[in-house]
């Protein structure tokens, strides 16, 4: 009994912390089926009108399309640029690699609003406010650290002798890369691309500054709806994002396990 009491306390503490972590995420789901336009919890009545509003209101659905397009472009650009950088860093000798890696990770640390104000200033002068290029450039900056970290972690366990072996057997640099290096670091690249997509899809601070009424991303739309009135459509969006992520992660877990078994 003397041994079990600390264990019980630890378990109880962790349960409470787990609830604290998860519960706020789940509160959104019942809210999305609310019968009336209010954010009181628990919601009264039942309706699907907020989901209907999301899919039929061009303000909402349009911003989803914008966000999805921007995030896809960012995933491609940041993954290519970030993977190249990670490979370069891994091959560098001496301190230069570590230094460049540290520099490339700084966008994660710079306070969001300071960066946003600076980008806004530059975009005003270059007419990039509210443009596709503007969003993609800014989000790519924020996504590069995640790609560099993900691909770098994969390269760290990659056996460079395999490349030398391929080269010594007569493979060109390019074919060595595509047939030996790329397949082996593909998991890192894919998770980097996923992180880049999510970073862009979720980014709100910089987007709030460089947004325009014509070209608005989903987080900006959510934010402005929240500051304007109590619209449960926000809860419907949150639930849909939760559902989407759960499906992707669930599929990833299933395929990951299958891949390991075979």
């Amino acid at each position: 009994m003397k041994l079990n009491l600390p264990k019980l306390l630890l378990g109880l503490t962790c349960l409470l912390i787990a609830i604290w972590l998860v519960a706020p995420t789940l509160v959104v789901i019942p809210m999305s089926f609310a019968g009336q336009k209010s954010l009181a919890f628990p919601p009264k009545g039942f309706s699907l009108q907020w989901y209907e509003n999301f899919f039929t209101n061009p303000q909402w659905f349009g911003s989803l399309i914008v966000s999805a397009k921007v995030a896809c472009m960012v995933a491609v650009v940041a993954t290519v640029v970030g993977t190249m950088a990670a490979i370069g860093i891994e091959r560098m000798k001496g301190r230069a690699g570590g230094l460049i890696r540290a520099v490339l990770i700084t966008p994660m640390i710079v306070p969001g609003v300071v960066l946003a104000v600076g980008i806004y200033a530059v975009y005003l002068d270059t007419q990039l406010v509210g443009t596709w290029i503007g969003y993609v450039l800014a989000h790519t900056l924020l996504a590069i650290p995640f790609v560099v970290i993900a691909v770098g972690a994969n390269l760290a366990v990659f056996d460079a002798r395999l490349e030398i072996a391929a080269a010594s057997l007569g493979a060109s640099r390019l074919s060595t890369f595509f047939s030996v290096t790329l397949p082996l670091i593909l998991p890192g690249i894919l998770s980097g691309a996923l992180f880049a997509f999510v970073t862009s899809f979720d980014e709100v601070i910089v987007s709030l500054f460089i947004t325009s009424p014509q070209l608005k991303t989903l987080p900006v739309q959510i934010f402005s709806s929240m500051t304007r009135d109590a619209d449960p459509t926000v809860a419907a969006v949150g639930s849909l994002i939760f559902l989407g992520t759960s499906v992707i992660i669930g599929l990833g877990l299933i395929f990951g396990m299958k891949g390991r078994r075979t």
Partner: peptide
């Protein structure tokens, strides 16, 4: 290796270093 890192550094220069410099 240095050339490989240039595109990423260019993005950093344009969208982070220059804006912070302006501030």
């Amino acid at each position: 290796p240095l050339y490989l890192t240039l595109p990423a550094l260019a993005v950093l220069l344009l969208v982070m270093a220059v804006p912070l410099g302006v501030i």
